[in-house]
Structure formats: structure tokens, C-alpha cells
Design a protein around this nucleic acid. Structure first.
Lengths: 214, 214
DNA sequence: TAAGAATTGTGAATCGTTTCACAACATTCT
DNA sequence: AGAATGTTGTGAAACGATTCACAATTCTTA
């Protein structure tokens, strides 16, 4: 059964990212192999969970020994699709937006911000870390003529849906939305929401109710 | 049974934040009441889910009519603990950190950044939006003598655990961690991780495997 | 005041995810 | 070589979250 035929849960994909980072660290520490037990201990998961997650994609380990660190890291990179470079566009050069242009972590993981858009005349044409800010009015055509496959939306809530409509019209299938609203997009477009205010609200709830996360 | 006795799932709390934002919007649109059906339609959920989530905390609706918008908004604010102001400290005035100091969304939701720490001598003493950057070496005592209850960690991965240790030592029970590592903290400290690289990896997976989120 | 329509609140059923438990296999030791 | 140890991969069991389905209740209209 091909991977694409199966339903892999969001949690499993999320944990693959966690395993990937753990393996990067283990490689630095010169581990050759790692057991599901030790990997689980480090990331506060269960060994069974680790094995089950990986088993969705194949048999990467050796019984009695564990998983080969470097090889597994490569396999996970392949599964996540991060064994290549992705060209990314950023819309909105406000506080958060500008910070992201310089954010090293993205480049390090192969996500390269290649285009930046804004609607502010004072910003259009200006240079952000070597990238000229484009006029958002041209976003559809500029994205169409580009190699961009992922767009980060970092505009105020009130404008986010309009931007998303343009982005979808330009044929983009993956959006990282930083605005605190629920974007309406067609079924074949994936949206991930990153909302720090919501995370703070979770902390607020926990402090108020003395409840720890499950 | 008191709320604090029950196990409320992470998903339910997350959705309360979503309902809260929807209700803010509905209030603007002058809705007096809202049915679970309509609320669900707007946020792409099911009516049963909405009702079940709310029912964990009480009976806020009226059969035949729906939920009173303003009142429900107030109830949810109370449940989430956002019917008050929370004092927040930020550690790390890099790209992302500086952006957060000016981030309006936090203040709007009652999360006030009152202290900022860094380890860079050139930054210590400088003024960020009216807040003087403190030396991270004094973080334990400064936090202890403050009204801060939530700390945002926006330092490089390599320093995040050290910062977290200090923050915990200062008696803080809630951390928003922006560094892409798994912080080790005692059981009575809640940590939420915000990791944009991981969200991009999810998009990468989806694009690579033609899988939409469940 | 009675009938009809709308909608909640919730126990039960369903569905999905996590954990358990163990056969299968690799390695190490004697 | 045989025994002991360690660890994977996975079907089955347990657990948890979501959805269903309907009694209870309110509102509206005649």
C-alpha cells in the first residue's frame, strides 16, 4: 500500500518532525543507532508510539539493535519532503513578517523565502535581506511566474482572507497562516495556522484551572 | 464536579479559543444569539462538537434558540482565564523576540509584555517599546520580584534549556517556547511549543504526499 | 392554547489513536 | 553452539474523542 493511499494522522506527522530533530542531535552526539526506548525517553513519548509511527512508512530498524541514526534521519527527511529545497513567499512585512525574512531556522531546514509582498507604498521596492518587496497588487501573476510552492501570510486579520484568495488563485496549494482567523480555501489547499495568542490562551487556561496538558 | 477535577482535552481548549474569536466577530455583526449549527458552519466543525465542548463547562444555551453571543463570549473568557490581564516576560530580543514586543495581538488579548531579557551586552539597557532590556543573568531574582506569570522563550535552541531552568527556578508555571527543542521542566510547569519550521514541514509533507489534513 | 419548528444537552455508538504484549529476529556471552 | 539479552514490528486491547440520535425545552404562529 502506497503511503499516499493511507491516512497518516496529524499527530504522527508532527512527531516525525520531532524525531527528525532528535536524530540531528543524536548524530552530533555520534550515536550510530538509537532504540525506540531511548528516543521515546528523550522526547517524552512511549517506545510503542515511536515504533508505530515509523512502521507506517516502512521497517527501518533492526531487531535487537535499534534504528541506524543517520539512515533513519534520511528516511524521515524523505517522508516529510524536506530532502529538497522549497521556495517560499511571504506576504506582509510588519513586525512578524520582517522577523521571518531573517529567521535562520527556515533556511537551515531548506525553506527559502524568495519573494516578499506588502501593500504599503513606503515598503514596496525596499530591500529586505536582499529581497525587494513587491506590490501585493501583482501577487497573482508574480506567484504564477515563480517557483514558489508555499506562502506565509503575515498580514492583519482583516486582510488575510483577501490575500488567501489571491494566493489560491495563483495556484498555491500550501499556506502557513499567522493571522488569527480561519481561512476559507478549497479542499485541495492545505492551511496550517500558527497563532501565538491562542497558545497563550492555553497557558492562561492551564494556570487558571490547574490543569496540565494531557 | 468541578471543572478542575475533569480532564478537558487539548483540542477542546483549542476550540474554545476558536469559539471566542468567532463570538467576537459575531458581536461585531450584531448577532444576539448563535446556534451550534451556524457556529460550526463558520469554523468548519460539527454542531455536536460545539455543543459537547461547551457542555463540559455548563449549559449556556437555550433550546430552540441557541447561545447568547455576548454572554457566551464572557463565559468562555472566564473559562480560558482571559477575563483578566496577564503579565508576561520575554527572553531573547532577536528577530522574533523584538517583533513580539510590538505585536498588538498580545496586548489586545490581555497579555502584556512587561519585562524583556537578553544576554547581549549591546542590547541590555536599550529601550524596546518603553521596556528596558534586562541582563539575563538577573532573571531569577527579577522574575521572583515581579508579577510575571508567563514567560516567552525566544532564544536560540542551544540556550533554551538553560533559560527554562532559570525560569522554572524563579517559580514560573507557564512557558511559551519558540525554540525548536523539547524543554525538560517539572510536571507542574506547562509548556507550549510554537515551532514554525515544524508547520512548514507539515506543509512539505502534505505537498509531497498529496495528503490533506484529517 | 395547541401545534409546529428549532435547537440544546447528553447517553450511546462509532471512530481513531495509543498502548500492550509477544513472536521474530539480531547480538553477545560463555 | 546454545543460552541469555535486547529490540523491532504488529495484531489486539484499551482508551479517548467525535458523532449520532433523540428527549427536553423554548419560541412562534394561528
Amino acid at each position: 500500500m502506497a503511503i499516499s493511499d493511507r491516512r497518516i494522522s496529524e499527530s504522527t506527522i508532527h512527531r516525525l518532525s520531532i524525531y527528525y530533530r532528535a536524530l540531528q542531535q543524536l548524530e552530533k552526539e555520534n550515536y550510530e543507532t538509537i532504540s525506540s526506548k531511548e528516543l521515546a525517553r528523550r522526547e517524552k513519548l512511549t517506545p510503542a508510539q515511536v515504533r508505530k509511527d515509523l512502521s507506517f512508512f516502512g521497517s527501518f530498524g533492526t531487531r535487537g539493535l535499534g534504528y541506524p541514526v543517520v539512515e533513519l534521519k534520511g528516511k524521515i527527511a524523505g517522508i516529510l519532503g524536506i530532502d529538497r529545497v522549497w521556495d517560499v513567499a511571504l506576504v506582509g512585512v510588519g513586525n512578524i513578517g520582517s522577523a521571518l525574512v531573517s529567521y535562520k531556522e527556515f533556511q537551515k531546514q531548506g525553506f527559502l523565502i524568495k519573494m516578499v509582498f506588502d501593500n504599503d507604498q513606503r515598503k514596496i521596492g525596499s530591500n529586505h535581506k536582499g529581497i525587494i518587496v513587491s506590490d501585493i497588487r501583482n501577487i497573482v501573476s508574480e506567484l504564477r511566474n515563480s517557483s514558489i510552492e508555499i506562502v506565509i501570510i503575515a498580514v492583519p486579520s482583516s486582510m488575510a482572507q483577501l490575500v488567501a484568495d489571491d494566493v489560491v488563485q495563483a495556484g498555491i496549494k500550501a499556506i502557513l497562516n499567522l493571522a488569527p482567523i480561519n481561512l476559507k480555501v478549497p479542499d485541495d489547499v492545505v492551511v496550517r495556522n500558527e497563532n501565538m495568542a491562542m497558545e497563550l490562551e492555553y497557558l492562561s487556561f492551564s494556570l487558571s484551572n490547574h490543569q496540565r496538558p494531557k
